[in-house]
């Protein structure tokens, strides 16, 4: 894929395969395919263990994005799609996964995935996706007890961050660190809608604000916005973040500051939480004889 230097918003697509596990040793192989508005992930699990996955940009066509993500996850595994007993589609494009046996809402999948990723102590999950933001409460098995979805606009989301990276000419993966290279914490930008936040940021730059300060103000605005969602739903420990924004320390640290609680950390890839949850649901369904 051609990558132009000027595409500041563009993040690197990737795939991963377990160096130890062999698909032939598995009894039940299941998969989750999470088609988000910005990124898509395919996760393959064998008996509930992570075997392979991919993370790609969602194209204009959901079925094709699903196929591409799955092909890429399976690449180099020596395994073909027909070995997968059950595929769950989730995310925004969940009904458009042609090879899925069932579609399950991303809220259920993210809670289940967070439970797997961060352990059974997780009670509050924040999923910051490409185009919306969800606060979820769950029990020790990752079953949802309450959720709140905010469908207003794209600020506080991955897409909003991409627009912003492009505007400032800063690579998206650097935003988090840069947002702390400031003398003092600026007031947050007041607009939470991307379109307005963009105009406001341009205005601040024209007024002579250094780039990093504008970035800090934007990260603070995103953090505050999700804080109010969690506040409304009610916060119960432990707290964890899933989705792409979990990788942005500029936003994560500011959310922690507002909530006065630290989010659990993981070595695992936070962007695959939804697809992992889907694969785990697939396993449960097969075991219950519903597969």
């Amino acid at each position: 894929m051609e990558k132009k230097e000027s595409e500041y918003w563009r993040w690197k697509e990737y795939n991963w395969k377990s160096p130890e596990l062999n698909w032939e040793d598995f009894e039940i192989i299941t998969a989750g395919v999470d088609i988000g508005s910005v990124s898509s992930q395919a996760v393959v699990m064998g008996d509930g263990e992570l075997f392979a996955y991919s993370n790609m940009r969602t194209g204009s066509d959901s079925p094709e994005s699903a196929r591409n993500a799955m092909d890429w996850a399976l690449k180099d595994t020596g395994m073909s799609l027909d070995k997968i007993r059950y595929v769950v589609g989730t995310g925004y494009g969940r009904v458009n996964v042609p090879f899925a046996n069932k579609a399950i809402t991303e809220i259920a999948c993210h809670a289940r995935g967070a439970n797997w990723m961060y352990g059974p102590s997780v009670r509050t999950v924040l999923d910051m996706g490409g185009q919306d933001c969800k606060a979820i409460r769950c029990d020790e098995r990752g079953k949802v007890t309450a959720f709140l979805m905010n469908d207003k606009c794209a600020a506080g989301t991955g897409r909003g961050m991409e627009v912003f990276a492009d505007l400032l000419g800063v690579h998206i993966q650097d935003i988090g660190e840069l947002s702390f290279e400031i003398d003092e914490e600026p007031p947050e930008v007041s607009s939470t809608c991307v379109v307005f936040a963009k105009a406001e940021a341009s205005q601040l730059l024209r007024e002579g604000w250094p780039k990093n300060k504008v970035i800090a103000a934007y990260c603070a605005a995103m953090a505050h916005r999700v804080f109010t969602l969690i506040e409304r739903l009610g916060m119960e420990k432990e707290f964890a973040i899933t989705g792409g924004i979990a990788k942005n320390v500029g936003v994560v640290k500011r959310i922690e500051r507002e909530l006065k609680i630290e989010a659990l950390k993981t070595e695992k890839d936070t962007q695959i939480a939804g697809a992992v949850g889907g694969a785990l649901f697939g396993k449960t369904l097969v075991e219950k004889g519903k597969g």
């Binding site: 949802v144 007890t145 309450a146 959720f147 709140l148 979805m149 905010n150 469908d151 207003k152 109010t228 969602l229 409304r232 739903l233």
Partner: peptide, 16 residues
């Protein structure tokens, strides 16, 4: 489970 649908904007909180 409590399912909350809606949003918050400058004028208030609108959740069902």
């Amino acid at each position: 489970m409590k399912a909350n649908y809606g949003y918050k904007d400058g004028s208030g909180e609108y959740f069902i």
